[in-house]
Design a protein around this nucleic acid. Structure first.
Length: 484
RNA sequence: GUCCCCAUCGUCUAGCCUGGCCUAGGACAACAGCCUUUCGAGCUGUUGACGGGGGUUCGAAUCCCCCUGGGGACGCCA
């Protein structure tokens, strides 16, 4: 039997790390078993669903390489499908109309909670007589449709990660599978319980891999699958991802659109997916840095963890830096430049001549975790100007002795020749003798004058990248600026 | 409140099913030393965990029970 998994987001927001982890596990499971990964858009709630979110989900999913094999299937585009299933349930007398209003239901739930009773629906409309129904209809109340839960035997949910979980049907209560439509705007409003089961059944989904927040929905779905005559799929409920404090994924984290990890922060797709795969799963052999293919090869839902995991940026950074190092020089250069181009406000870096930029990129490949770091590490490329220097840097240049250092450095060029590292050594020797400065007082003014920053790559490396004329010019300019 | 899930270093995890090889392994982080006349990177090392209590057993991180703690669900959202 071919494995068929699906990712079924509702288009009510952007894809974030939590969503993507779920999508990834579905993808990995399908790929490991040479099966199909299917995309379905659950847009049955017209109030909340937005096409722009659906479009964004497709874009982001492709951006991070989770290409689906079938779909996207939009639930809103196939109302007949659900209507047909509803009629099937009607014929079997498995459903009934419910005329309780939202206000009544809310009030009853509140009361139940106060009385310390389970706030479930009391099935009261299940036993309405024909006359009562007629009266309600005449009063113009639009009903919902509820599914009759057989409360005589426990409902078993078979979970790949947790084993068999048993639910007491008394706890469930008849649930709504079709919403009412007081305004008469919609033909048909299935709830997610109905649409999920109908689609998973019709699409031949073999494994439902979703977040643990759905575990208590699953007994309802088992009942529905059975009533609709479908084979009940294998469930796998993933533990949830939590924020740094251990609380449920914070707004700070869910607010980050997944594409921003790649486009704004500059993580490698492989690094990001590698980290996400390790959140709640392990190959059990101590491997951590893995290619997507290696992960697919090793992936098994049975060794997903049962407990939730905290999202940790440090570890993501480390894994990403490992993937960065593994990149060939050419690919690395290409991706780095692509990233810089997308961040076009960093024109100062990109306007460096290509050969110089290329050399600089090689220079810093191993001391960054993600492309976002490029901007700081490459900040020595644009020519610094005294008046735009940060406060700390300015302070360094206005220290006693700094002027002397820069003056003698600028002058030194008349007497010493050469390029690159030898030039740097000769320059330092010369300035040391001429200015009588040493240590930080000697090196820092030169660093700041040449790069504009207190920190950065080694000076001798920077001398290899920047040519003699550029360095001389920067030292002279800064020395002049300091005088006025 | 009720039901369900879960519980190993600060964090991600291995070990648990099939008790002894666990004086609990790896990784990230932290810290220290080295290297580097900056930051970073690198190298070497150190600290650091079986939530608590009862059982079962010659022996429990591993099996059972209770407690505690965390999470999820209880919608005409998905």
């Amino acid at each position: 039997m071919t494995v068929r998994t699906r990712f079924a987001p509702s288009p009510t927001g952007f894809l974030h790390i939590g969503n993507v982890r779920t999508a990834l596990f579905n993808y990995l499971y399908a790929k490991h078993h040479k099966g199909k990964f299917i995309l379905r858009i659950e847009d049955t709630d017209p109030e909340r669903s937005k096409q722009e979110y659906a479009d964004a989900i497709l874009y982001d999913l492709e951006k991070i390489g989770l290409q689906w094999d079938e779909g996207p299937v939009y639930q809103s585009k196939q109302p007949d499908v659900y209507l047909e299933s509803l009629n099937q349930l009607r014929k079997q007398d498995k459903v009934y109309p419910c005329y309780c209003t939202p206000d009544e239901l809310v009030a009853r739930r509140k009361e139940a909670l106060m009385m310390k009773r389970p706030p479930r629906y009391d099935n009261r409309c299940r036993h309405l007589t024909r006359e009562e129904i007629q009266k309600k209809e005449q009063a113009g109340i639009r009903p919902t449709i509820r599914f009759k839960v057989d409360d005589t035997k426990p409902v078993l949910v078979d979970d790949l990660i947790r084993g068999q979980v048993s639910f007491d049907p008394q706890e469930i209560g008849d649930f709504v599978i079709m919403r009412s439509d007081p305004a008469g705007k919609h033909d048909f409003l299935p709830t997610f319980h109905l649409s999920v089961c109908v689609d998973d059944g019709r699409m031949g989904i073999t494994h439902i891999v979703r977040g643990e927040d759905h575990l208590s929905n699953s007994p309802r779905h088992v009942l529905l699958f059975q009533a609709l005559g479908f084979v009940v799929p294998q469930f796998a409920h993933l533990s949830l991802i939590h924020g740094p404090g251990g609380e449920p994924l914070s707004k700070r984290l869910t607010a980050i659109r997944i594409r921003d990890f790649v486009e704004q922060k500059g993580y490698l797709v492989e690094g990001l997916l590698n980290y996400l795969a390790l959140l709640g799963w392990s190959p059990k052999d101590n491997r951590e840095v893995m290619s997507l293919n290696e992960i697919i090869e090793a992936f098994d839902l049975r060794n997903a963890t049962k407990h939730s995991a905290i999202f940790n940026e440090d570890k993501l950074n480390w894994i990403n830096s490992e993937h960065l190092r593994a990149l060939s020089e050419d690919v690395y250069q290409e991706k780095a430049i692509e990233f810089l181009k997308a961040k076009d406000r960093q024109a100062g870096i990109l306007s460096a001549e290509p050969a110089r930029l290329k050399k600089s990129l090689s220079l810093i490949k191993t001391d960054m975790t993600k492309f976002e770091d490029l901007i700081e590490r490459l900040s020595f490329l644009p020519e610094p100007a005294f008046k735009t220097l940060p406060a700390e840097e300015k302070k360094m240049l206005t220290q006693p002795g700094a002027q002397k250092v820069l003056d003698s450095a600028a002058q030194a060029f008349n007497e010493i020749s050469g390029e690159g590292e030898p030039l740097y050594q000769a320059l330092i020797d010369h300035v040391k003798a001429a200015s009588q400065q040493k240590g930080k007082a000697l090196f820092m003014p030169i660093r700041v004058a040449v790069t504009g920053h207190l920190h950065g790559p080694e000076m001798k490396k920077i001398f290899e990248v920047l040519d003699r004329a550029t360095i001389q010019n920067r030292l002279t300019q800064m020395s002049q600026a300091l005088k006025s």
